[in-house]
Amino acid sequence: MTVGRVLVDAQSARFAGIDPLLPPVTAPADGDVVTAALPDGTRVAGVLHHQVHERRSPARLWSATEVWELAPLLGGTGGAGMDALLRAWRKRLDLARPAERDSACVLTWPSRDAEATRALLDHGLVPLTVIAVRRGPSPPVAGVATIRRATPGDLEAVLALALAELHYSSMVGSTVRRPDAVELKRRGLADRLAAGGPMWLAERDGVAVGLVECAVVTAEPGNWTGSRLPPGRWGYVNCVSVLPGARGSGVGRQLMAFAHRELARLGTVGTYLYYNPPNPLSSVFWPRQGYRPLWTMWEVRPAGALR
């Protein structure tokens, strides 16, 4: 058995004790290996992936252009192992010389691992995004809005709502307002509407005031979703937006109750989504809808600010 396999198995055992919803750890994809040693000689490792998104990539709407992402293999060492590995990462960055602007260091780790959280904070990383999950039924919610399926003819209304969400998120999370955001959003939404994906509008007096855009994915061994969620068919909530003048009126709650029932009807075992803990709306709204953090995505921008 290799050292990597030992670390993977030990990390799986530790994760199972932290949060029963975490799937077993899988070996990260090939990349640049970073290693570190603890004072007692115990070794930890991580796999570092470097990516530069193309200028017209939709990923640049929620990500820095140059990203250094570390997948830690700490075994059972907890916070001490995380601290040692982050120190080694900092030294590796000194050699790599990342861009001074529009770059980031990113690391995803179980939200309930308080020991590791202390080390991540000490090294300058910020909990910008969480992957939150929800399981269980959602009773109907009465409201003033009428909810219907979005169609290709609704593109302009859907685009306006999606851009409102992007604008707000850019102030309180990882989203970046790019010059070509409108074009990128229009193209992506048009494709999803044409494909008939699950997307619903909330209307008041015939005016679209809320949007929920979803997808259905399968978590299974070997795919990305399977590395983050328990096995099964899951509903993914990609975007929820309510126009500023309609916020606080129950439209969002009504939309999500409807979406939860529809996704359950499609055979999903639960739903998941991303939200930003610094967002004063999302950080209150999503726990009230039954979601709780499973993974936290830690980030520092620019990448050279890692301590």
Rank of each mutant, 00 (worst) to 15 (best):
T42A: 14
A16D: 02
L107A: 13
W298K: 01
L266C: 12
E66R: 02
R228D: 07
N223H: 08
T151L: 13
R149K: 08
G79E: 02
Q11R: 03
V25L: 07
W89G: 08
G79V: 09
V130S: 04
T65S: 09
W234V: 11
L120Y: 01
P152N: 08
N279L: 07
E100R: 10
P39R: 09
R135E: 14
R292L: 13
G136R: 08
A208C: 06
F15K: 00
R149N: 09
A29Y: 06
G153I: 14
A16P: 02
V6P: 03
Q289H: 10
R307I: 15
G222F: 10
A10C: 08
W295C: 08
W68E: 00
R149I: 15
E299G: 03
G245I: 11
D32L: 11
P293V: 13
P244Y: 09
A257F: 11
W286N: 00
V176Y: 06
A13Q: 07
W224L: 13
T146F: 09
D30I: 12
G79M: 08
T296V: 11
W295P: 03
N238I: 13
Y168A: 12
L184F: 05
L155G: 06
R288S: 13
C105F: 03
S63V: 06
E100C: 08
A259F: 07
D9E: 14
S63F: 06
T218Y: 04
V237A: 07
G270K: 02
Q289E: 14
E115K: 05
Q11N: 08
R90W: 06
T108R: 07
L95Q: 12
Y274A: 14
G304V: 04
L74C: 09
E54L: 15
D122E: 14
K91M: 15
A119H: 00
W224H: 15
M1Q: 10
G4K: 05
L48S: 03
L294W: 00
G136I: 15
V172Y: 05
T42K: 06
P110L: 09
L263N: 01
G226T: 04
R187K: 08
A305K: 05
K91L: 14
S169L: 15
V242H: 01
E69S: 05
V3S: 14
I131P: 03
H49M: 09
R186D: 05
E66F: 04
A264M: 07
S12G: 12
G78C: 12
L73G: 00
D30N: 08
G136S: 12
V25S: 02
Q11D: 06
G248Y: 03
D113F: 06
T218A: 14
L7E: 02
H260C: 11
S174I: 13
G250H: 04
A202S: 07
V133R: 00
L273V: 15
